[in-house]
Nucleic acid binder design. Structure first.
Lengths: 179, 179, 179, 179
DNA sequence: GATGAATGAGAGTTCATTCAT
DNA sequence: GATGAATGAACTCTCATTCAT
C-alpha cells in the first residue's frame, strides 16, 4: 500500500472513531470524511461499506486491547491482572464514548466478546482462578456479559472515574472467592 | 381528550414499542402508523416529534415499573425485594429488546435512571440495607449504574435466562453484606 | 386515489416522458421531479423505483396505441390499416424521441413487442394477409422486428417525415404480396 | 508513440469493446482498465474522455468495415455484394451487442452513418443500381436509415440468425427492382 | 509513461414532518 | 380529528476525472 494511502487510512479510522463517538450510529460517512479531511470516495476506497468501516474500527481496537491483555497475563498478581484489565477496558469504553453501541448495534459483538479478545481474557480468568483469587464457579460467559454490561453503561452514561470504581468494586467483590 | 383519541394514543404507544423492539433505532414513523392502524398524521397529533413518542414510551414503562417497585417495597424480605426488582427489570429489558438503546441513544436516560424510578428504587435499597441484607456502603449511583449496565447488555446481547441468573448472581453477591 | 394524487401522477408521467426524451437513459429522478413541479418523494410514492416509473410509461403508451390499433382493425382497407398503424407507431417514436431506447435498455421490450400490443398487431396482420395485401409467408416475429427496428432508428436518429416515408415505402413494398 | 504505448492503446480498445458489450452504457472506465490490465490513468493518457474512447471504438470498427466494403465492391455480383454487406454489418451488430446503443446514445452516429462508411456503401449502392439489381429510386438516406434500424434492433433485441434472415429478406425484397 | 489513490458532484432512495383533503 | 400525499434534506454509494507517486 502506498504511503499516502496508509496515512489516509489511519486518518479515516481516527476520524470515524471520533464521529461515531459524537453522533452514534447515525454518524454519516460525509461527517467522517470531513473530519478526516478527505473526500467520501477515499473512505470507500478502503472500506467498501459503512459497516465495513465500523468493523475495521472494532478490529483495530480489539487488536490493541488484546496486546495489553497478553502483557498483563505474563507477570504479577493473577487476580490483580484480571481486575486491572477489566477496569482498563471499561475506562476505554468511557473515553471512546458511544462507540460500543454503534458497533454492537451494527451487528458486531461489543469488544469484549470479539473473537480476538476471548482468548486473552480466558487466560486471565483461568490464571486468576488457579491462584484462588476468583471463584471457580464463574465462567467465561458471565464474565464477558458483565464486562460488556459495564462497557455499555460506562460509555452510554459517561461514568466518571469515581462511579466507575464504586460500580466495579461491587462486581469484583462478587467475582472474588467468597470466604 | 375524546374517547377515540385516547384509544388511538394507546394503540400508537403499543405499536411503537413493538416496532422499536423489532427495528431498533431505525424504526420509522410510517411503520409505527401502519402497525397501529392509523395515519402518520394521527401520531403527530399526539406526539409532536419522533423523540416525543419515544419519551412517552419511556414514561409509560417507567410508571408501570414504579408501581411494581412500590408493591415490592410493602412487604416480605427486604433484601429479596431489592434483588427481585433488579432481576425483574433486567428481564424486562431482555424481552422488550433493542428498546433501551433506541431510547437512550435518542437522548433519553435508560429507564433505571429515569426520575420516577429513582424514588421507588431508593426505598428498596434503604430497606434492604437497614435489614442488613445489603452492604451499607453501597449508594444509589452505583446501584443504578449496575442496573443500567445489566439492562443494556441484556437487551443488546439477548441474555438468555441462564446467563442472566449467573451474571446477576455475581452482582448480587457483590452487593450483599460481606461476612 | 385522491384527486391531487391522480393529478400529480399524470404530471409525473408526462414530465418523465419529456425528460427521458431529452436525457435518455441517464435521466435523473430529480430532473423529472423538477419538471413535474413536485418533490422527488412524490414520484417515489407512486413509483417505487426508477424502473417502475419507466415501465409505467411504457404501459401507458402501449395502452393508448392498442386502442388505436383496435379502431383501425374494425373497418376499411385491411392492407392500408396495417401500414397505417405501422407508420403511426413509427411517427410516434420520432415524436417522443429517445424514449424507446431508454425503455428497452431498461429491460422493457420496445413498445412493439410489449404484450398488450401483440394481439392488436396480429389481428391487423392476419386481416391484411387474408385480404391478399400482405405476403402470406411473413410472420409476426419478423413484422415486430421490423417495426421495432424502425422505431428505434426513427427516434434515435430523428427521422424527418420525408425520410420516414421513403424508408417505410421500402419495407412496405417488401411486405406486399409480390406479383 | 512508444511501442508499449501503442500496445496499450490496442489493449484498451479491445477491452472497451468487450466491456461495452457486457455492461452497455453503464460501463465504467475502471472496468475497462481492469480488463485491459492497465491503470485508469493509462486510458486517460490516450483518450481524454470517456466519450473520446467510445468514438475511437467507432472509428476503429468503421475502418475495418470500410475495408470489407471496398473488397466486396471490387468483384462479383453487384446486387449480391450490397446485400451481403448489409447482412454482414447487421450480424456484426448482433455479435457486438449493446455496443451500438452505447455509442449512439453517447452522441455518436451509429456506425452505418459514420462518415468513413458512407463512401463505400454509396459505391455498393450505385453499382447495384447500375446493374439493375436495386430500384433506381432508392437513395442513400433511406438505405442508411434501414441499415441503422436493422443494426439497432438486431443488437438491442438479440436477433437470432433465423429472424435476421427473415427480416432482412423483407427489406431486400423492398429494395429490389420491382418487376 | 504508467499507476491507482483521491476527489466530489451526483445518482437513487428514505423518512421525519407538514398540511390539504 | 383523522388521513396519507407531498416535501426535500440527508443518506449511502458510484464513477469520470485529476494528479502525486
Amino acid at each position: 500500500m502506498r504511503a499516502d494511502a496508509q496515512r489516509n487510512r489511519a486518518r479515516v479510522l481516527e476520524a470515524a472513531e471520533e464521529v461515531l463517538a459524537r453522533d452514534g450510529l447515525a454518524a454519516s460517512m460525509r461527517a467522517v470524511a470531513e473530519l478526516a479531511g478527505v473526500g467520501v470516495g477515499t473512505i470507500y476506497r478502503q472500506f467498501p461499506t459503512k459497516e465495513a468501516l465500523y468493523q475495521a474500527i472494532v478490529a483495530d481496537r480489539t487488536r490493541r486491547l488484546a496486546e495489553r491483555a497478553a502483557e498483563l497475563a505474563e507477570g504479577g498478581d493473577p487476580g490483580r491482572a484480571l481486575f486491572t484489565f477489566f477496569a482498563m477496558i471499561v475506562e476505554h469504553a468511557t473515553t471512546k464514548k458511544v462507540f460500543v453501541d454503534a458497533l454492537s448495534a451494527a451487528g458486531v459483538d461489543p469488544k469484549a466478546g470479539s473473537p480476538d479478545l476471548r482468548g486473552p481474557i480466558e487466560t486471565l480468568l483461568v490464571r486468576a482462578q488457579r491462584a484462588g483469587a476468583v471463584r471457580p464457579d464463574v465462567g467465561m460467559p458471565e464474565l464477558l456479559a458483565l464486562l460488556s454490561a459495564a462497557c455499555l453503561a460506562a460509555q452510554q452514561q459517561g461514568w466518571d472515574p469515581g462511579l466507575r470504581d464504586r460500580a466495579l468494586a461491587v462486581v469484583f467483590d462478587g467475582l472474588r472467592t467468597q470466604p
